[in-house]
């Protein structure tokens, strides 16, 4: 089982992501954005950060990096692709996920622990979680307000592709629990084939009990269990 963590210029959660994956025993490489192949990797992670300084628009320049055609190809072939924060923004810009992430509604960067509710577990990223389970995972972003047109939102809901929503500690996805103004409190979605997952919260920061939460582990455990089954097959 091998993981690639893509390093764009300005990626800054790349080291955290690599450490988290290695802690789960996954052989993990940094892959430079100027490389043109991701052959041999079972999971490709696009980490958080400020690729290309987030100049122009978050993720808008990274989508043109030399590595991106290979990632699109791998995604089309069914390889798991995980985009966290800036990685989610890049996946949207690259057209691997629908919609876009825009400036937080209060215009401020926000960093804090909050709750997300698991909406759907029929996917490789959350199948070891329970529907309705609350995960306490930090966010840290200035542009995390998910937006899409009504038809796209309806389609995401109809096909069970909204995987995470911001919720309060009682599990209600109320506006008061929405940190950034995301449509329908959306915190994470997947593509139609369910092998590309983008989310704004940082599960890699919620894996070590010393940091106050291990609720991010369920995402990595699900991925591992999916890949384990795939490799055994």
């Amino acid at each position: 089982m091998k993981a690639a963590v893509i390093r764009f210029p300005g990626s800054n959660c790349d080291q955290d992501c690599v450490l988290a994956l290695r802690d789960f025993g996954v052989e993990t490489d940094f892959v430079w954005h100027k490389d043109e192949s991701v052959a041999g990797y079972d999971i490709i992670a696009l980490p958080g950060g400020f690729s290309y300084g987030d100049y122009l628009r978050c993720g808008a320049i990274a989508r043109f990096s030399p590595i991106m055609p290979a990632i699109k190809q791998a995604a089309a072939a069914g390889t798991l692709v995980l985009g966290i924060c800036n990685g989610f923004q890049i996946l949207c810009e690259a057209g691997l996920l629908p919609g876009a992430l825009i400036r937080n509604r209060d215009l401020h960067f926000r960093c804090e622990h909050l709750h997300v509710r698991v909406e759907n577990v029929a996917n490789p990223f959350l199948h070891t979680a329970k529907t309705g389970e609350l995960l306490r995972i930090p966010i840290a972003h200035g542009e995390g307000s998910y937006t899409a047109d009504a038809a796209t939102l309806a389609e995401l809901n109809r096909t069970g592709r909204v995987l995470l929503r911001y919720a309060d500690s009682a599990g209600a996805a109320l506006d008061a629990a929405n940190p950034n103004g995301s449509a329908e409190n959306i915190a994470g979605i997947c593509n139609a084939a369910r092998n590309v997952f983008g989310l704004m919260p940082h599960p890699e920061r919620a894996c070590d009990p010393r940091l106050g939460s291990i609720d991010g582990r369920v995402i990595f455990e699900s991925i591992l269990s999916t890949l384990g089954a795939r490799l055994a097959a």
Partner: peptide
């Protein structure tokens, strides 16, 4: 103030801002 700062990147912040001292695990 501190909500505007990313105070958790590098996955080492053991005590969040607001306590008597900040505590950081250098992995």
């Amino acid at each position: 103030v501190w909500r505007q700062y990313d105070h958790m990147v590098r996955a080492g912040t053991m005590v969040l801002p607001g306590s008597d001292a900040a505590v950081f695990l250098v992995r």
